[in-house]
């Protein structure tokens, strides 16, 4: 009894603070926690009920793991998992190399005014939506009018119908992801490099270290902790992908699905075009649970390496 009374006293004493968090709490309850509760749909055969969401969930019949069994009995589960992981692996590795290299070069080139100009140019794509970017891509890949096919024709080569031939798309998607992301990715590394104590370089120069040696033995070791942390965090997100890249850029072209379908697009199509509510929920839950485990696991590893860099 006394504890309950204490609790209410605390609530009263903290009422201003509680009022401040209230709008956010309501939002989290509605847009984050209620959907978490909604994942029980994955274990049910979802039927819409006229009395709304709760009635639908409660009245739908339990089917246990049937939705998951069905999901994993198809080829789709393998394909979307493979695509998601492989693309993300390439994005992580290539993105890391290019972002770090760009940051180092930006820091090293002698004309700092030009460095600023380059950075401005490279960051521009980050502010465009994938819808806009998909039009950009279309100007190059359009079958009858695109720049690439124009060039091919000029050299007397055959036209390629880009949007129906899957073999090119792994490269196109990787290229576009890098094109849009490198400018942004290099900012954090550049910040770290600019923050390195100049004394290290002075000392190295006195010892006669070349530029390349300075980069190898000062710059890179100094930003290694940051590289490790960001990379591990990215691995934690390896099950999630950028929906716009895989949906907008290939113009949702059906013949490209084998190489462009990832978990996110699969769930979206399952919901919006197939209407398979329970199955899509199951696929989404599979993504969330594995993602959750990966974040916890990678964070544990980060904690072991260096506590300061752990997320929690």
């Amino acid at each position: 009894m006394a504890r309950i009374k204490r609790f209410f006293q605390d609530v009263y004493k903290n009422k201003t603070w509680l009022l401040m968090v209230l709008p956010g709490v309501v939002w989290f309850l509605l847009f984050s926690y209620l959907p978490m509760f909604g994942t029980v749909i994955a274990f049910k055969n979802f039927q819409f009920h006229p009395d709304g969401f709760f009635a639908s969930v409660i009245n739908s019949e339990w089917v246990g793991f049937e939705n998951f069994e069905f999901l994993f009995s198809t080829d789709d589960a393998f394909i979307i998992t493979r695509n998601t992981i492989l693309y993300n692996l390439v994005f992580i590795i290539l993105g890391l190399i290019l972002a770090v290299a760009t940051a180092i070069i930006l820091n090293e080139i002698t004309n700092k005014k030009m460095a600023k100009v380059y950075q401005t140019g490279m960051l521009f794509p980050h502010f465009l939506s994938w819808v806009i970017v998909s039009y950009f891509v279309f100007t190059f890949l359009s079958v009858d009018r695109g720049m690439l096919n124009n060039i091919f024709q000029w050299f007397g080569m055959e036209k390629v119908s880009w949007y129906s031939e899957p073999e090119y798309w792994p490269f196109i998607l990787v290229f576009m992801s890098m094109w849009k992301g490198i400018g942004y990715g290099s900012i954090v590394y550049l910040a770290a490099i600019v923050g390195i104590d100049r004394n290290y370089y002075e000392a190295a120069m006195i010892d006669g270290a070349s530029k390349w040696q300075q980069i190898r033995h000062i710059t890179i070791p100094m930003i290694t902790p940051l590289i490790v942390i960001l990379t591990i965090l990215n691995i934690g997100k390896i099950f999630n992908s950028d929906f716009g890249l895989f949906y907008q850029v290939p113009l949702d072209s059906g013949s490209l699905y084998p190489v462009t379908n990832v978990i996110d697009t699969y769930v979206y199509r399952g919901l919006m075009t197939m209407g398979e509510v329970s199955m899509s929920t199951a696929a989404g839950l599979y993504q969330s649970v594995v993602g959750f485990i990966l974040v916890i696991l990678t964070n544990y590893i980060v904690t072991r390496i260096n506590k300061d860099y752990a997320l929690f």
Partner: peptide, 16 residues
């Protein structure tokens, strides 16, 4: 760290 995924979010937004 964890989210319910697209489908429950969609259903909550449209039905609730």
């Amino acid at each position: 760290l964890f989210n319910g995924g697209l489908v429950p979010f969609y259903i909550v937004a449209t039905q609730v």
